Amino acid sequence: MLKTPRLASVATLAAVALIGAACAPTDEADSANDKATDTPSAAAECTPDTLELTTDGTLTIGTDKPAYEPWFKDNDPSNGKGYESAVAYAIAEELGFSADEVTWVTVPFNKAVSPGPKDFDFNVNQISITEERRNAVDFSSGYYDVRQTVITNADSAIAGATSIADLADAKLGAQVGTTSYTAIGEQIKPSVDAAVFDTNDQAVQALKNGQIDGIVVDLPTAYYMTAVQLDDGMIVGQLPLPEGEVEQFGAVLDKGSSLTECVTQAVDALRDNGTLDQLVEEWLAQGGAPELS
């Protein structure tokens, strides 16, 4: 288990590079990226003049509200601060858009990955690439490698857990529709049904109130919650990767979108030129969080 010190500001938290979850490609990550889209391998012509956009001349990007740190800063996706905001603007620049040619729209998490027409060109909201979701939407290649993590309070019954078996009787919670919620049922498999929340803020409040024993979230969010949102928060540990697979966040697009290949090319370019690694170092917290056996 890991006790995370309370930080004076989010800026301090974000200053340290994330260890163990960097976006540099690995063989596994490359394999995941190859599955992210079914578009042709030939380079598409990707310029503002050729792209089929939701609004002519404007790149429309979606995310949820509130927009959580450390992925966004001050609940304002348009300021370019926070990892996903910075990635979104870097993708826009790769596609030939200036910052003032980007507009943001609010899209609830579940709506972003549900079937049906979208009111955005692409969406960034810590959405993991899964085969089930790819039945309803398109994904770019992955822009961040994810680890699911269990957090709690220092006086919790699961504070000393070192294995998944130690969580067998825990009441755990996660945001609805997320791979964090899926991980509770498929990896941890506690005897008590998981609690589901519309937002991570609601999960944090439930933990403060003693309604749940812990929360499952991605690792950077775990660092933020334990250092900033909880008075005595701590990281219990990271869940093993299921069957050794790399989980990745990807940009979401409408199913069959003509933009999918272009956004994928932009993400791949940002990975290849080191931009994604630089943004991880700038915006995401670090730590040697223990592994749950």
Rank of each mutant, 00 (worst) to 15 (best):
Q126I: 03
W104E: 03
S140T: 07
A168H: 15
F109Q: 02
A88R: 01
T130N: 11
E94D: 13
K171W: 08
G96N: 10
P117H: 12
Y144M: 09
S140C: 10
I127V: 14
P117Y: 08
F109K: 08
P115S: 15
A174D: 04
T162Q: 15
P108M: 11
D169C: 09
G142N: 06
P115I: 14
S156K: 14
N153M: 12
F97K: 09
I127Q: 02
D155A: 11
S128H: 01
F97Y: 14
T103Q: 14
A161C: 05
Q148G: 01
E131A: 14
A161N: 03
R134V: 03
I127Y: 01
A157N: 15
A112P: 04
E101V: 05
S128V: 09
T103W: 05
W104D: 06
T106K: 11
G173T: 07
R134P: 00
E93I: 09
T149M: 06
D138V: 10
S114L: 06
E131S: 14
W104L: 12
I164D: 07
L167I: 11
R147P: 00
A157M: 15
Y143M: 03
N153W: 07
V87S: 02
Q175C: 07
A92H: 07
F120W: 06
A99D: 14
Q175I: 03
Y143S: 03
W104P: 01
D119Q: 11
D100S: 15
I151H: 01
D119K: 10
S98M: 14
A161Y: 03
L172H: 05
I91R: 01
K118C: 04
R133F: 04
A90W: 00
T152W: 07
S128L: 04
A161H: 02
P115V: 13
T162I: 11
G116Y: 04
E131R: 13
L167Q: 13
K171F: 02
A170E: 09
V176L: 12
Q175S: 04
V124S: 03
E131K: 13
V87W: 00
G173P: 01
G96V: 10
Y143A: 00
N123V: 04
A157D: 15
F109R: 09
S163M: 05
S114T: 09
T130S: 13
Y89V: 11
A170L: 10
P115Y: 15
V124N: 02
L167P: 10
Y143V: 01
R147S: 08
I151F: 10
K171D: 12
